[in-house]
Design a protein around this nucleic acid. Sequence first.
DNA 1: GCTCTAATTAGATAAGAATCGAATCGACCG
DNA 2: CGGTCGATTCGATTCTTATCTAATTAGAGC
Lengths: 203, 203
Amino acid sequence: MQLEKLVAYHKALADPTRIRMLILLSEGELNGQTLAQRLSVTPATITHHAAKLRAASLIRERRDKNTIYFSLDEYFIRTGGAATADTIYRRGADSPGEADPEVLERREKTRASVLKSFFAADGRLKSIPAQLKKKLIVLEHMVARLEPGRRYGEKEVNDFLKEFHDDYATLRREFIMHQYMFREHDVYELNPPELWERWETLK
Amino acid sequence: MQLEKLVAYHKALADPTRIRMLILLSEGELNGQTLAQRLSVTPATITHHAAKLRAASLIRERRDKNTIYFSLDEYFIRTGGAATADTIYRRGADSPGEADPEVLERREKTRASVLKSFFAADGRLKSIPAQLKKKLIVLEHMVARLEPGRRYGEKEVNDFLKEFHDDYATLRREFIMHQYMFREHDVYELNPPELWERWETLK
DNA sequence: GCTCTAATTAGATAAGAATCGAATCGACCG
DNA sequence: CGGTCGATTCGATTCTTATCTAATTAGAGC
């Protein structure tokens, strides 16, 4: 259910230690011991918090020999929905004038031109973009036609997608993979925008 | 401190009852008794949650005789930073095609034209817009030049604002009032974008 | 002033969550 | 193999928080 996801997400960010952990990680990956030291807690506590952050897909882990390095999840970094990520990210790696209106304007132009080149006049998708950024623009354009909160059967989703492109199976997979929708017992539903992958906010 | 605000904000949204409360309120104002009944909790519980939501500036209250009507805080509804608001709002009052690229494009055009008409070629502000929407665009444009996380003295803030307009005192007050910055012992700091007042996401 | 209704406060309970120390696991290295 | 180091698990402790019931406050209307 959506409610639980939303709550779980906010719970993950509702603890000062975890937020500080994310802030530290925004400057680069760190292992457990280092995190423990920097945050003045024991390694056990780090494990505890890492589990919660992992459950909310906020961090990733990489193992090198005996050491586990934590880093921000790339989705999380890119997610425009969660302004938190933005805040944290900006505080770490200083981005000079990210919210600049010119940047926004340029961004919007890109968006328009991508839509224009991938969609035909009749609204159908000419092809599925290979490049991630472009693909996300295209997916988000389509997902905007779906109703938040409504539950869709598999056939409904397929029919909806067929209007855009014959390869509806690929599109459906992309929707799930990039977190625009989720499936539960063959019922599909939109995710809250917080979970959408957005390339635009950060770079 | 920023950290605490961020945590408090997420804590407020980290409870299913509170989220459901917000969803109910997105359809219109309700009094305590009604909320209690709809959520199957006692009025005392509603009071408890209302206090938390109020502390996070997520709801407002209006008193009519003996009855207190709760409603979503208009800032909250408009806040682009909190995609949550967006989610909740959309689920309640169905807005047809809000994320439509055309809407975004039009929005960006508005923004550009407001900036063009209120800022002179030398970058100074010609006048402070009276209309809320325009004022927010202008404020956000200026605030983008400040560094997140950095602490500014009062004089620093004044000097910064003087570059835009002689009436720096008004500008400073607007910054605080619209939650772009906060002050603590004469030290000013940027708020996380979540708290910024944004008109753009919803209408 | 009395009574009704809505909201709040206070106090109690119970569930949840953060943290620690100690024990354990797992992989590396000499 | 045995030691070491980093991470995890476990159990105990303490703090927080959601919820209730019962008592109290605050108005409104009679």
